[in-house]
Structure formats: structure tokens, C-alpha cells
């Protein structure tokens, strides 16, 4: 199959960028989206042109590195699918495909489709951890955890930190990411102890990084490749409110 790509090209962080058109020819429908880009890049290299820079690592939907805005939807048209797990059979012959980087002040473009997402790392450093003494590994069943709590924590822990929530949100808000991390840790007894401090510190860092605020449009939930629910945002809001009330005493 053949498709026409419109790709954001930008030499470096401060260089101006623009959409550039490429013909992707002789594409197999069984190729993944990233394999299709690899093929286009081989063609560019053969012609002596700069290949399109894009982020990727595991290519199996678990690392959160791939990050493409495809035809206006973060990670493309398929639900609960990362860009690397998307296949060309989801497109039709001759289709125009627009590929852009995540757009957010907190995620500046490094080159072409690659953005700097270290803002997420700094949010994790601010509170996305459980403080424990190092030493022997504790017995797995030493602390009993109710099944529903373990399930809910696991669902939140599925977040791979790709940033699709930020990319899709009209406010470039990181609330779904932060709330997934807060839920994942604060639902478990080990993480509950630092729950208040964590919620306050992570929200403060999120604001500092220049992400927008949540207006509850739920666009994030719709594009999240791991189907994190906006219910976790309600949980973060509760944690934050509780922490604020506690700290006022």
C-alpha cells in the first residue's frame, strides 16, 4: 500500500519547524507504524537526506517511549494502543497521515518528533516513591492487601508514562499521569503513610513544570494506551484535599 505522510520536521530545539510531505510507497499492511517510518527513513538516507527522528525503544507497548500524534490523536486511531503497536492495516490506501510531536510547554521538542519528557521524571522524584529502609527483601505476604485495592493499584500502575494524556489534553495537563502514580502508591499500605506528602509534592512539581490544569474533559482517558481511568484523578483530588486540610491544623 501507499500513504502520504505529513511530518513535523525541526532541526533542533530552537530551530523553526514545519510540516513536510513524504510519499511512503510499497508499505505492507502487516508492518507496524514505526516499521513504516523505518522504511521511509531508509529511503531518505539513501537519498542523502536526514532521517525523521522519532522516539522508540521496546516496540512492544510497555516502555512508553514511542510518542506520536497521528492524525490528531495521541498514539493514533486505535484504542488502548501505543504508536509502536499500531499497524498499517489500520490505515487505507492513499490516506494522508499527519504525524506531529507531543505539544506542551513542559515537553519541548528536541528534534523532529522527539520531545524532552524529563518533566515527568522530576514529578516522580518529587514524591512518586515509597521510602523504605534498604535491607533484606520483605516476605511477599507479610502485609495483607485486600484484593480490590491490589487490583486498583495494579490498574494505575499500568501507566507507562508516555505522556499521551498531556498531548491529548487541550490544556496540556498532566493530571492523569500524576493521578495514576499517586493512586498506584497510595492505595497500598506501604504507600499510604506518605500519601498526603506525596500528593502535595507531586502536584506542586506538576505546576512548576508548566503543565496546564485539569478541566475534566476526559480526553486523556480516551487516548491512554493503558486505559487509566479519570477516576484516579478524583482520587488525586481527594488526596490533595485531605493533605491540605491536615496541613492547616
Amino acid at each position: 500500500m501507499n500513504v502520504r505522510l505529513h511530518v513535523w520536521r525541526q532541526q533542533s530545539a530552537n530551530a523553526p519547524g514545519k510540516m513536510v510531505q513524504y510519499e511512503a510507497t510499497d508499505i505492507s499492511p502487516t508492518m507496524s507504524f514505526l516499521e513504516m517510518l523505518d522504511l521511509v527513513n531508509e529511503g531518505l538516507v539513501a537519498k542523502g537526506e536526514e532521517p525523521i527522528a522519532f522516539d522508540h525503544d521496546c516496540r512492544e507497548g510497555i516502555c512508553g517511549t514511542c510518542s506520536l500524534m497521528i492524525n490528531g490523536v495521541a498514539h493514533g486511531p486505535n484504542e488502548a494502543t501505543t504508536s509502536c503497536q499500531l499497524h498499517m492495516r489500520s490505515f487505507h490506501e492513499g490516506q494522508d497521515i499527519y504525524i506531529e510531536p507531543w505539544r506542551a510547554r513542559a515537553f519541548p521538542v528536541i528534534r523532529d518528533l522527539v520531545t524532552d519528557r524529563s518533566a515527568f521524571d522530576r514529578i516522580i522524584q518529587a514524591g512518586g516513591f515509597v521510602s523504605v529502609n534498604t535491607g533484606g527483601v520483605p516476605d511477599a505476604n507479610a502485609i495483607a492487601i485486600p484484593k480490590p485495592d491490589a487490583e486498583a493499584a495494579m490498574d494505575a500502575a499500568a501507566c507507562i508514562g508516555c505522556g499521551a494524556c498531556v498531548a491529548a489534553c487541550k490544556n496540556a495537563s498532566a493530571m492523569l499521569f500524576v493521578s495514576a502514580k499517586v493512586s498506584h502508591l497510595s492505595l497500598l499500605p506501604q504507600g499510604k503513610i506518605e500519601g498526603s506528602r506525596r500528593a502535595t509534592a507531586m502536584v506542586a512539581q506538576m505546576d512548576l513544570e508548566g503543565f496546564g490544569s485539569c478541566t475534566n474533559t476526559q480526553e486523556c482517558e480516551a487516548v491512554c494506551p493503558k486505559e487509566i481511568s479519570v477516576a484516579s484523578i478524583a482520587r488525586l483530588n481527594r488526596e490533595f484535599l485531605k493533605a491540605s486540610v491536615e496541613s492547616s491544623h
Partner: peptide, 29 residues
């Protein structure tokens, strides 16, 4: 205040952006 913050958070707009789930009312508050 929040609307200004939200506009500031996305300095470069997408050339192509689809709304998958959000309602029109939520986008025009």
C-alpha cells in the same frame, strides 16, 4: 487564571487535532 495557565501550557498548536471524547460544552466553558 486557570484558562491563562492552560493556554500558556501549549505554546505550539497542532496542525491536526481530533477530539475523541470531550464534549463541546467542556471545550467552550
Amino acid at each position: 487564571r486557570l484558562t491563562q495557565l492552560n493556554r500558556w501550557a501549549r505554546p505550539v498548536a497542532y496542525t491536526n487535532k481530533k477530539n475523541v471524547r470531550s464534549s463541546l460544552s467542556s471545550r467552550t466553558m
